[in-house]
């Protein structure tokens, strides 16, 4: 499935909805959206992954980039990841760096 990333800002919370496959070809688009969010200085970054089918290493790299770009004070929520996407996050250890949730609940 073609990749898409949509940003919505509300109450200083950046929500990005990810759809399709996040691989080397789509990672630059995701990175653009992260940068777009970062300039608006959000207090939280919520990544909605219900409809993300696949996460390649390039996609994971952008997640790491997001963590660096937002800074230590901005919590990142990974919401609705499942199957191979969740497995990839766990195997690589990235799930230790973010909040993993089935549905978005504000901490």
């Amino acid at each position: 499935m073609a990749f898409d990333a949509q940003l919505a800002m509300a109450d200083h919370i950046a929500k990005i909805t990810l759809i399709g496959s996040l691989d080397a070809s789509s990672a630059p688009r995701f990175k653009e959206v992260i940068e777009e969010a970062a300039v608006q200085s959000p207090t939280k970054l919520v990544l909605l992954m219900d409809s993300l089918d696949f996460l390649a290493s390039a996609g994971l790299r952008v997640l790491i980039f997001a963590k660096q770009k937002m800074g230590a004070g901005v919590d990142i929520y990974v919401v609705g990841s499942q199957g191979p996407v969740l497995a990839t996050l766990e195997m690589s250890g990235f799930h230790h760096s973010v909040y993993i949730q089935e549905t978005y609940v504000e901490a």
Partner: peptide, 20 residues
């Protein structure tokens, strides 16, 4: 030795192990 070896993420996986 990496569950993520097929994805080319063995470096991250080993570093995560060391960190933990």
């Amino acid at each position: 030795f990496a569950a993520t070896g097929r994805l080319g993420m063995q470096v991250d996986e080993l570093k995560t192990l060391v960190k933990e």
